[in-house]
Design a protein around this nucleic acid. Structure first.
Lengths: 231, 231
DNA sequence: ACCTGAACACCGTTCAAGT
DNA sequence: ACCTGAACACCGTTCAAGT
């Protein structure tokens, strides 16, 4: 993320370098820190120099998606999944979880994916591979199509949760007290949380393992699709 | 959306009026048109006057979520769903589809929901009702918890698609030609699209009915949950 | 050809001043 | 008390000028 500070025009600027630096800036300071001026200083250059290699900021965000997608492609490549002909479910599951691992390293990336209006060719390529995988698994094109919609962003390893990734693992007394106050207004949620915390004494309030929950939802969909495929 | 142009301080400003106007501005011009200055002119007032009724723009976005949620609550109220004790699936399904109808009237709203870091109390209230509904349907709290995560934003009626809502219903020759060019790089997707278009000659390329696909994914999850409930 | 500095048209927001 | 105008610190971006 520090990039070649002071390196100046030693290594000439390029679209490639700009995009990689953009990913680095977002990784280090979050997506709101990715401004043209910020990106320029990370590259040891003036903000206006960027415009010689990318059309504008939108183009940078488009390019950033491509960088992340190529990282996902590499991760998928390293995966030792069974051929889809033998076990489409495991093959797809491993692909999606590999993609998810990459996105967990770039937590700001899903938000950027969502803002892109024209879908990146790299994403289309990824989905084409998913379609091929499902076809090899014996799906009709009609069911493949439904499957893509049912998976939505889950095909790339992320979902939109309605609660933030509540890293309130502390389970301190203040939170518990607040919970009791809230019990009047949200009786079911509070009871649910207390019962789950009781079942799993290790996690007092940090009762949401995102990975476990992601896989639960994913398997629910994959199992449902398998039922429709064979049914 | 025009609001009381020129009404000036006739009707005094209030948090309520500010938030309702904000929804109107976003409905009319998209979320990027919702700026403090724009909102002010819609209210016939100076931009700085807004700060007497809301802390800042973040507070406006928080409030906008509450306005949308109350609209959803009203829509849910009008729904004639069966009691969850009799048929939890239909009850939840109708609730979610009612929420979705509201969000379809405010297409920018899901994007705002996603940016809120602290979850709105109105959303929590909504989810509490969902939990109560599932409990009445015979779910264990453990399964309810999994269900909330599996549904994610689908509980509120929206999903993140990887393709934009491709309103390219025209099916004009240019698109078809481009498709053939793309067939080399995306063989499976292109074959899928052409086969589906063939199955359903009415929709040449506008082969994605978002509502149908949303319900397909929703039912896949709801059916899966029903299996786990009774299994 | 690539990079730069100053400038422009926007943001959200602060502050002191009006009534 | 509520509203205002000018100003500030940021954006992305244009343009003419440097090398």
């Amino acid at each position: 993320m520090v990039a070649d500070r002071g390196a100046g025009p030693q290594v000439p600027l390029s679209r490639e370098r700009v995009l990689r630096a953009a990913v680095g800036v977002a990784d280090a300071g979050g997506i709101e820190s990715l401004t043209m001026r910020n990106l320029a200083v990370a590259l040891g250059v003036e903000a206006m120099s960027l415009y010689h290699h990318v059309a504008n900021k939108e183009a940078i965000l488009d390019g950033v998606v491509d960088v992340i997608m190529s990282e996902i492609d590499e991760a998928v490549q390293r995966t030792e999944a069974p051929p889809a002909e033998d076990d489409w479910k495991t093959a797809l599951r491993m692909r999606i979880l590999a993609a998810r691992e990459v996105l967990l390293r770039h937590p700001w990336a899903p938000g950027v994916f969502e803002t892109r209006t024209t879908t990146s060719l790299a994403v289309v390529r990824y989905l084409d591979a998913v379609v091929g995988l499902l076809r090899a698994g014996g799906f009709s094109y009609d069911l493949v199509h439904h499957a893509l919609h049912a998976l939505g962003s889950r095909a790339l390893g992320f979902t939109q949760e309605l609660f933030e990734p509540d890293s309130n693992g502390g389970g301190d007394g203040a939170a518990t007290e607040m919970l009791e106050q809230l019990a009047g207004e949200f009786p079911y949620l509070v009871e649910m949380m207390s019962e789950i915390a009781h079942d799993d004494p290790d996690s007092t309030l940090g009762w949401c393992d995102d990975q476990v929950e992601f896989e639960f939802g994913l398997d629910l969909i994959l199992d449902g699709l398998e039922g429709l495929r064979t049914g």
